[in-house]
Amino acid sequence: MSSTPFPDKPHAKPVGKRPVAAFFGNLWRVTLVHLAWPAVRTYVWLNENLHAPAWAGGSLREFGLRLWGFAWLTFVWVLLWGDVTWANIVVGALIALLVMVLLPLPRVPVEGRFHPLSALKLVGTMIYNFFLSSAQVAWAAVKPGDPPLGAVVRVHMAIKSDLTLTLAVDYINLVPGTMVVEIDQDQRMLYIHVFDVRKQKYIDEFLKQMAYVERQFIKTFERDDEWHPSPFHGIDDDYHHVPFADRRRVVEQERSRKEKA
């Protein structure tokens, strides 16, 4: 008689991941501990202890915004010449510096926090809507029958920041078939010309798209739990004219959308 209790049963495999899967599974933890977390701590320390000079905006966020404007003006200069050379880059940088010093723009309050993943989703949706709307406008231009019936539709946006509202308006204007013709800054109301409103479903689709734009811009730039009003403003709600009920409406729409999905 064999001494093993189960001679015909194969040996059980050890519990756990395979070496390759275990390596990649632990890689993100090592990265978080040794790279990401020290980087976040360094950024927080710099933001709390270092202050940009007054000519650079007085804060790291304002300095970053001005640095971005400087780089953008330099890029536009090189783009206008159409030739990437060191001479064009240096001259463009000098001209950008002169423009920012001699012709400074009003300060743009930087509020909220930027979320790259939500921004990528927003850009992807914009590209999709761009091609879809372009095809719809092209088809309406060549198909026989009555021309499309356009109208101006009023849309309310529960967006606090003027900068975020401007980006939302640019988003809407980039999509063919829609154009913002007027903005009520105090009431956060947009008057948008819609290409075709002959059927109720067209209006419903447009309003649904605007609700998505509103919700996604808030998720990308100004989530309520990360909102930090700029010191250039006074009381938050008094300046931005966005009641709490409007922001709550956006939250309920997002929750309803997830429940349906």
Rank of each mutant, 00 (worst) to 15 (best):
R18N: 13
R257Y: 08
D204Q: 14
I192K: 00
R113Q: 14
P106T: 03
S3K: 12
K199C: 05
W72R: 09
A151S: 05
V137D: 00
P19G: 02
F75E: 12
F195R: 01
K17C: 12
E214S: 03
H115Q: 12
Y171D: 01
N88A: 13
D8G: 11
L27Y: 01
W28T: 13
M210S: 01
P5Q: 12
L105V: 06
F130M: 02
L120W: 15
M126R: 12
A93F: 11
P116C: 04
V108Q: 10
H115C: 05
K199N: 10
A36N: 13
R198W: 07
G64Q: 13
G64T: 10
A52Y: 02
R198A: 12
D162T: 10
P148F: 00
A245M: 08
L149T: 09
H51A: 07
D236Q: 07
V90F: 12
L174N: 13
F24L: 09
T31A: 10
L103Y: 12
D224N: 05
D204S: 15
Y202Q: 12
I95L: 05
I192M: 02
H241W: 02
P144Y: 04
L98Q: 15
A56Y: 04
T85D: 03
G69Q: 14
A93N: 05
P19V: 06
M1R: 08
V123T: 06
D162N: 11
V169D: 01
E254R: 09
H156L: 08
A138D: 04
W81H: 15
Q253H: 08
R29M: 15
L97V: 14
L97S: 08
P14C: 14
D184A: 04
S230I: 01
S134V: 04
M126C: 14
W227I: 07
K219R: 14
Q216S: 03
G16P: 00
T125C: 07
R18V: 12
D196G: 02
F114I: 03
I159N: 00
I172E: 00
L190E: 00
L60A: 04
L190V: 03
H233D: 09
M157C: 02
A52G: 06
R61V: 13
V142Y: 01
